[in-house]
Design a protein around this nucleic acid. Structure first.
Lengths: 117, 117
DNA sequence: TGGAGTGTGCAGTATACACTACACACATGA
DNA sequence: TCATGTGTGTAGTGTATACTGCACACTCCA
């Protein structure tokens, strides 16, 4: 599994091919961040930045923010909030779902969305 | 909703009634922690301690650790790990479950446990 | 050939986190 | 009365987090 830095560097360079507004400096400027800091992050010399900064990067690089946060070893604060409101219940559920295949979880999501619960 | 400090103080004092081994000093000694630190935490003068320390307190005070962590504004690291392995999938699911009543979530837990998925 | 743009190296900083250490005041019982 | 146990107040500490700031080397092209 590739790391956080590697992922955003690859994604940025991919976008940069089509559009010069995706140079390291340009992206850093939009976040905003110091270019040298972003550089160190992309090369994995520095730990991933804060959740807010990761969200901003995900926005700019058009990347799923939950996925990017996960690569940074974090869980989105809004999800954590949902769990914290019913910790025992959600604790049970999530531990139960741990070994359930993607397909089954996805089916669950759809059934809940369709109001079958 | 009562805070973290208040909760552990109440719980500790309740146990202390039956057993002198639940004085602030004795509990602090078992964790182990400096008594003054635990005192400040119980009175809400200090932020809740680390996840490890909260788990230890939950163990000593026979309190659900997920619930205690939630009062401290935290989500158990093992749950976070599960989510981080499939961030998009679990993100969808949890946001979908946000407004589902306890009863429905509980039924879900049981159905999954019974292998109906 | 020099000005603009590329990424990088190195140093420094403010704030929060998670505590320890120790002195103090009060109560109780022997 | 004094040793023991109760909780508390104040100060200090080491480490991590999340960055900034600026100088530097390289490339490109006008």
């Amino acid at each position: 599994m590739s790391g956080f830095g590697e992922t955003i560097r690859n994604r940025r360079e991919e976008l940069q091919k089509q559009n010069p507004q995706f140079s390291l400096r340009a992206v850093a400027g939009r976040v905003p961040l110091e270019p040298s800091y972003l550089s160190r992050i992309e090369r994995g010399l520095e730990a991933p930045p804060s959740e807010q900064t990761i969200r901003r990067l995900a926005e700019i690089l058009e990347f799923d923010s939950d996925a990017l946060l996960a690569l940074a070893g974090k869980v989105s604060a809004d999800l954590a909030d949902i769990i914290r409101k019913r910790p025992v219940l959600f604790g049970q559920l999530i531990r139960e779902l741990k070994h359930l295949p993607d397909q089954a979880v996805l089916r669950l999501v759809r059934e809940i969305r369709d109001g079958n619960w």
